[in-house]
Amino acid sequence: MNTSNSYLSEFSTVLLFIIGGITFLSFTFLISRLLRPHRPNTEKLSSYESGEQAVSSAWPQFNIRFYVVAILFLLFEVELIFLFPWASVFTDKALIEASNGTWAWFTLFEVVTFVLVLVVGLVYAWAKGYFNWTGDKSQVSDIKSPVPSQLYEQINERYKTK
């Protein structure tokens, strides 16, 4: 069909934007390359850490909270993908007439059921305290210090504010 062909060809505009964006930036980087100096040295190429020598890699294990957020995002993004087609046929006149006007209520009921299942997930995460990032207490270290605790107490006594 003619319409489907022209529909696909509309994506050429998107391609134009992508290629155009890359071309524009490459061109500017090229100009920049011709103008800018290139004088690297060890100090300049070292990682910035507020003037300190960078110790160890900056790619650590990360907090599990970020993982939970990612899973919740996945859940709701999939939900969104399913809701968009619904939104585009919700007010479809032909479908409303074919179902004697019950189409909108019917689809709304279906979607609410679907969303409620996902909202249970959100409520679960909420109740579990996954959004309460300051909730956990700092852990007391069980390392045995060679300094007796009375010494700390004495210092506290000496500098006690009146």
């Binding site: 500017t28 920049s32 103008l35 800018r36 290139h38 690297p40 190429l45």
Partner: peptide, 12 residues
């Protein structure tokens, strides 16, 4: 900005 050196850290 266009005249500034493009620094890529050696650790990157």
């Amino acid at each position: 900005l266009i005249q500034k050196e493009d620094i890529v850290p050696s650790a990157a």
